[in-house]
Amino acid sequence: MQISFPQEPAEYCGRDLVLAFPALVDGERVQCAITAEALEDHFGAESLREDDVQRAFEVNRRAIEHAARKMLQELGKKPVLLHSGFFRFYDE
């Protein structure tokens, strides 16, 4: 399975409090997202405000993409949502 992450800006969804970012799995686009709570709890976002979670995502993008890659390898070409609880048990 070939997985890559286009270097596009993550999109904030205020209604769901998530940042969405794309992955390419065997050439097909798959949506990945991380909750603002996970960014606050595990990646240093100062608040759930868009600019704070965007900044935390960009600073920690490689680690977040690595976690998304792990989930995609387990789930296949299905959308991924990374919650704070995932990172409590995540073993790099």
Rank of each mutant, 00 (worst) to 15 (best):
V25C: 06
Q31W: 07
F87G: 04
E65Y: 04
H42M: 09
E65R: 07
L81A: 05
K77N: 10
R61G: 01
Q31R: 15
K70P: 00
A10C: 06
C13A: 03
A63D: 11
E28W: 00
A63M: 12
S4I: 14
E37M: 08
R69M: 02
D51Y: 11
A36E: 05
M71V: 14
V53T: 11
H66Q: 14
K70H: 07
Y12G: 03
H83I: 02
L72F: 03
A45M: 12
V59L: 15
L75S: 09
E74I: 10
V59I: 15
G85C: 02
E74T: 06
L75W: 12
Q54M: 12
E28C: 06
L48K: 14
G27A: 05
A33G: 12
E40H: 15
F5V: 08
Q2T: 06
E50C: 04
V30W: 02
Q7A: 10
R88E: 15
A56M: 08
F87K: 05
L75K: 14
P22G: 01
M71S: 06
M71I: 04
A23E: 02
P79G: 01
Y12V: 01
G76S: 06
R15Y: 13
F57L: 09
D51R: 13
A67W: 03
C32N: 12
Y12P: 05
E28L: 08
F21G: 02
F89Y: 12
C13T: 05
L39T: 09
V80S: 02
A63C: 05
P79S: 05
E92D: 13
L24F: 06
